[in-house]
Deep mutational scan, measured.
Amino acid sequence: MTSCHIAEEHIQKVAIFGGTHGNELTGVFLVKHWLENGAEIQRTGLEVKPFITNPRAVKKCTRYIDCDLNRIFDLENLGKKMSEDLPYEVRRAQEINHLFGPKDSEDSYDIIFDLHNTTSNMGCTLILEDSRNNFLIQMFHYIKTSLAPLPCYVYLIEHPSLKYATTRSIAKYPVGIEVGPQPQGVLRADILDQMRKMIKHALDFIHHFNEGKEFPPCAIEVYKIIEKVDYPRDENGEIAAIIHPNLQDQDWKPLHPGDPMFLTLDGKTIPLGGDCTVYPVFVNEAAYYEKKEAFAKTTKLTLNAKSIRCCLH
């Protein structure tokens, strides 16, 4: 018999989150649709729960009410004593943790798909938090293969000092899905179709896995975050240069030392320094102006996964 890495157990509980950011409308629209008619997301033997994560922000069509829901799922915020004085999103995070967690427990949901849009030209993107997770690498390989020839990129946010504390991190297997470009507060049919297909293929993978299909060893190309880059700023902290036209919409493309990065209003080009080629992502993302992030630098690498098969009882 072929030796293989056996994944822990079959997958039982899956959640699909929309509206973690209330103005990213593809996930909101799909989740609302699936709450009314969820036939397309159901798979035999699998509990799939669509869920609106930040209903107040969705109602106002804004990213958040008090603070970013997708950055506060750490033990400090989840452990705060519940009171009306807490920011709305912290209270909501505790409610979500109660419903789908608790985080880092045996009772937490197996998989959470968190649906997002970006204003950046990132196409279909899967966000991975753990480079050693054979199950998710296999799932992402399946999704990428199923979507081809449509490109699907994998963004690895594993980093020693950049801690995200994402909404989906309460699950055993957290999956971020990011599709763009799409303006905030807008629905685009092409973007919706791409996100819908990503979810379909992900659920198909889980179904095949649960039925005992063995997935042979595989490898995927990923883009691992190195650092986030702020806009150049003046002495008052105001933005002093904008994304250069040569960099705009060039997510995932190589940016070499000396290539144009920013452009000042008086026409001066600010190039990339250093001696390493990087791959920019979230270029000129609207939501990241407040976070002082013009783009993120990534490096390209390959992740390998062992063969996996479900432990059938």
Rank of each mutant, 00 (worst) to 15 (best):
S3M: 10
E9T: 14
I11D: 02
A15Q: 00
A15H: 00
G19S: 03
G19V: 03
N23F: 03
E24M: 04
G27R: 02
G27S: 10
F29Y: 12
V31I: 12
K32W: 05
K32L: 05
V58F: 13
D66V: 04
R71F: 09
R71K: 12
I72D: 08
N77M: 11
K81Q: 14
K81V: 14
L86C: 15
R91D: 09
A93D: 06
N97T: 13
H98P: 07
L99N: 08
G101Y: 05
P102I: 06
S108F: 11
S108W: 11
D110A: 04
D110E: 08
D110P: 05
L115V: 05
T118L: 11
T118R: 11
C124R: 05
L126W: 01
I127Y: 15
L128G: 02
S131D: 13
S131C: 07
R132T: 12
N133E: 05
L136V: 08
M139N: 00
F140E: 00
Y142L: 00
P149W: 02
L150E: 14
E158T: 05
S161V: 08
R168I: 14
Y173G: 05
G176F: 08
I177M: 11
V179I: 15
G185A: 07
Q194V: 11
Q194K: 15
F205G: 00
H207W: 15
N210D: 04
G212S: 04
G212D: 04
K213Y: 08
K213I: 11
E214K: 10
E214P: 10
C218G: 00
A219D: 08
V222G: 05
Y223D: 01
Y223M: 05
Y223T: 01
I225F: 09
P232M: 04
D234L: 08
E238Y: 06
Q248W: 02
D249S: 05
D251Y: 02
G258H: 12
D259Q: 14
D259T: 05
M261D: 03
F262Q: 01
G267T: 04
T277E: 12
P280R: 02
F282D: 06
V283I: 13
A286T: 09
A287E: 15
Y288F: 15
K300Y: 04
T302V: 13
L303E: 00
A305I: 02
K306D: 13
S307G: 07
C311W: 09
L312N: 08
